[in-house]
Design a protein around this nucleic acid. Sequence first.
DNA 1: CGTGCGCTTGACAGCTGTCAACACTTGTGG
DNA 2: CCACAAGTGTTGACAGCTGTCAAGCGCACG
Lengths: 238, 238
Amino acid sequence: MLTAIPAPDVSHGLNSHIRSTALRFRSGQLIFDEGQKATRWYEVVRGTVRTCRFHIDGQRHLTGFYFAGDVFGADHGYYSTAAEAVTDVLIECYRVGDITRESSPKPQLEGAVSMLFRAMSSAQRYQFIMCHRTATERLAAFLLCLHQQGGNNPRIRLPMSRSDIADFLGLTIHTVSRTFTDLARRGLIKVDGRHSVILIDKARLFRFAGEYHDNLLPRNGAEIHPAAELCLGNRSAA
Amino acid sequence: MLTAIPAPDVSHGLNSHIRSTALRFRSGQLIFDEGQKATRWYEVVRGTVRTCRFHIDGQRHLTGFYFAGDVFGADHGYYSTAAEAVTDVLIECYRVGDITRESSPKPQLEGAVSMLFRAMSSAQRYQFIMCHRTATERLAAFLLCLHQQGGNNPRIRLPMSRSDIADFLGLTIHTVSRTFTDLARRGLIKVDGRHSVILIDKARLFRFAGEYHDNLLPRNGAEIHPAAELCLGNRSAA
DNA sequence: CGTGCGCTTGACAGCTGTCAACACTTGTGG
DNA sequence: CCACAAGTGTTGACAGCTGTCAAGCGCACG
């Protein structure tokens, strides 16, 4: 997952006890819509999912990307976002009732609270980036998140379109495209087709992300570097 | 409260059963710091409180304002923000244990989950504003929120400084100041000293906020107008 | 091989941050 | 009560970034 999404961590050691259904969606298909009753939550098995909001004037805002192992759609009452398949996807679908009703001591509920607080914290960091960072800094942070998400492989896969990236980072596709070109010209990355980027100079990219490299320590433990702020996936955070 | 803050609604019919302590802070004083163990939560009795994050490069980001009746500091584990008194304040302080431990069926916990999901939804709307709105639109939305918070009184009180407003809206004090002047020149508001604004043309201000006026309906029920997006106070939402 | 969509690039304008100067308010001390 | 200083807010000039408009490229698909 990339940022700011409520997602109770119920995926460890629980799935085996809960009825689930495997579902497939083709690229671009709607999984659930904003405002629908939130009766199910989902786990990505294969592929990539995006969650988004549409606004009156037609503008779209993406609130997160979800990859294999990530949980999405864990909302209360009604879905606050829509969810769509970025690529062809295979997902597991669970009924909400299975979490909230069928357990007496409700450890999951407390887990959900903990997860939500962390999601709030993550959302606040995301807000900071959107308020204070330039296009270059945002894209650098985004790429570093995908890099980490992909197991630190220097080849970063970008399953989503430029338009998706733009709507996630609060930019236009033009600026995203220009920024890719700019980062490549500076020798930080190499763009390899639409859906792949090769990381050349990780340390400098960290600096562009407003981040110091790993061997430099932040001022104190409570601070989190901007580049780390987009990438609180719900798997690793568990 | 103004936007994006986790705050379980435990203030109705519960306070009377829970030990609390009244505290006073003078303008500018720190109430709790980012990263401290979250052992207490607070309710504003009188005055205004702000929550903020400080980043490595020295930049400050405000995540919310809290007024009489609002709850803040309801975090899990560690505070994800600092809290400071904007004005001299009187607040009630509650121990976390009183919420999570001393009740067997834990209805509060479920209430907290519900509240948190709404806070997440609110945070996502705030993100949208920060991504897609101009200074004028942000300030207009902000003023309308304060207007509503103040009981729809045409005189809007601004207890916070320009700097606070800037750090909340992701702008500089210069832009905030210019935007105030601009709104006044257009005849939408009248600036009356540092801490007071008189609302002249509410309908037009709504339009500036990217909002249609109340008598126009949004496209469908699930949509929420941008101007409404900063002002999900935890009192009214309860 | 041709078509269309997604992506890239360039020119330009508008918004907002930066820098600088000044005005106004508040508080202190004479 | 006035003088002064410090802090806060306002205003202007300017530059840089990013959105808009427009054109063209290139890959994917038929």
